[in-house]
């Protein structure tokens, strides 16, 4: 009951936000955060729930973005169809990535996806006839106002969280967690572990690909260094998951807002209030944040919410 009330309030706040806050800048930040909710939640489905830690989610983000961009610039197909196509082509690539990488377990799987991400970045850089290489792809955004983008991002984020919530209540969810906890035991309990690891990867790559296509539509410009970036996409997905709380439904959503907030605070040097050199330090701050989270909140903000309430709020109450 209490949960439903909180969800309803959150829904109203998010629906009303762009109507109340007219600033393009803040709307932009929320749009980017909502996009990260989608990527973080997708990463969490594969890594948090199924236990297959990916260091290569930029593959799916980049494929989604490039599919939408190429369809529009070469064939003139509306980039909104591109969002669907981007999701599907990311899934197809996911099938291939799974076929190759799921032969490996644990850290070896993670390393294989890391290498995969770099391979796709190099392909996108060098296949100039298709991708325009380092020049990148530029399209004219469909809307001038940020409102449509905001609501599309909101719908995508809410849809993604809801879909993952449903999946985790079903047989798939039980199977994913069983595979994470012990792949050998899962196999001997009649679970086709290879199949279900791929199912998890496909759902994850679908949503990440759609987020990538959305990015193309919204920003209007992509190049391989941005959408296939190890640092800005693959690692950021992991940070969003870890900071918010791995294997929790709302964790990556919280993580997305925290990480986008931290990133922007430093990028803009505390919104112009601090000296410019601070903005150079944002990678350092990310590192410190991860160390802090691992040391004190190993389960992330959502996973350790009880601990946060006990420690932080009690101190406040007594002082």
């Amino acid at each position: 009951m209490k949960k439903n009330v909180i969800l309803a309030i959150l829904g109203i706040v998010f629906l009303a936000f762009p109507l109340v806050i007219k600033s393009d800048y803040y709307q932009h930040l929320i749009i980017i955060a909502l996009m990260w909710v989608v990527i973080g939640s997708s990463w969490n489905l594969l890594a948090g729930y199924t236990g297959q830690v990916s260091f290569g989610h930029a593959i799916f983000f980049g494929i989604g973005a490039y599919t939408a961009g190429i369809l529009f610039s070469k064939l003139g197909i509306s980039p909104w169809w591109g969002m669907l196509a981007g999701g599907i082509s990311a899934m197809l690539i996911g099938l291939f990535v799974g076929w190759v990488c799921f032969r490996l377990r644990g850290p070896y799987f993670a390393l294989a996806t890391l290498a995969g991400g770099e391979i796709f970045r190099l392909i996108a850089t060098n296949w100039e006839s298709l991708t325009e290489g380092m020049v990148g792809i530029l399209i004219i955004p469909s809307f001038e106002s940020k409102l449509p983008y905001y609501y599309i991002a909101l719908l995508l984020a809410a849809g993604c969280i809801f879909a993952i919530h449903l999946i985790m209540q079903s047989k798939w969810g039980y199977y994913f967690v069983s595979i994470r906890e012990n792949q050998d035991a899962a196999e001997s309990l009649g679970i086709n572990t290879t199949l279900y690891k791929n199912v998890s990867l496909l759902v994850s790559s679908l949503f990440t690909g759609m987020a990538g296509a959305f990015y193309m539509n919204y920003m209007g410009f992509i190049d391989p260094q941005v959408v296939f970036s190890l640092h800005y996409i693959s690692i950021m997905s992991i940070l969003v998951g870890i900071v918010g709380g791995v294997a929790t439904i709302m964790g990556p959503a919280v993580g997305a807002f925290v990480m986008v907030g931290v990133q922007e605070t430093f990028r803009s040097a505390f919104f112009g209030m601090a000296p410019q050199w601070i903005s150079e330090a944002h990678a350092l701050v990310f590192g410190l944040l991860v160390i802090f989270v691992i040391m004190f909140l190993a389960n992330g903000i959502v996973g350790d919410w009880g601990k946060i309430k006990r420690n932080v709020f009690r101190i406040k109450a007594s002082s």
């Binding site: 047989k171 039980y174 967690v177 906890e181 050998d184 035991a185 309990l189 679970i191």
Partner: peptide, 17 residues
């Protein structure tokens, strides 16, 4: 080989599928 971070009921439910 228990599925350590699942409850006993969840362990058995997963295999009942």
């Amino acid at each position: 080989k228990p599925l350590a971070r699942m409850t006993v009921l969840e362990n058995v439910t997963a295999s009942a599928f």
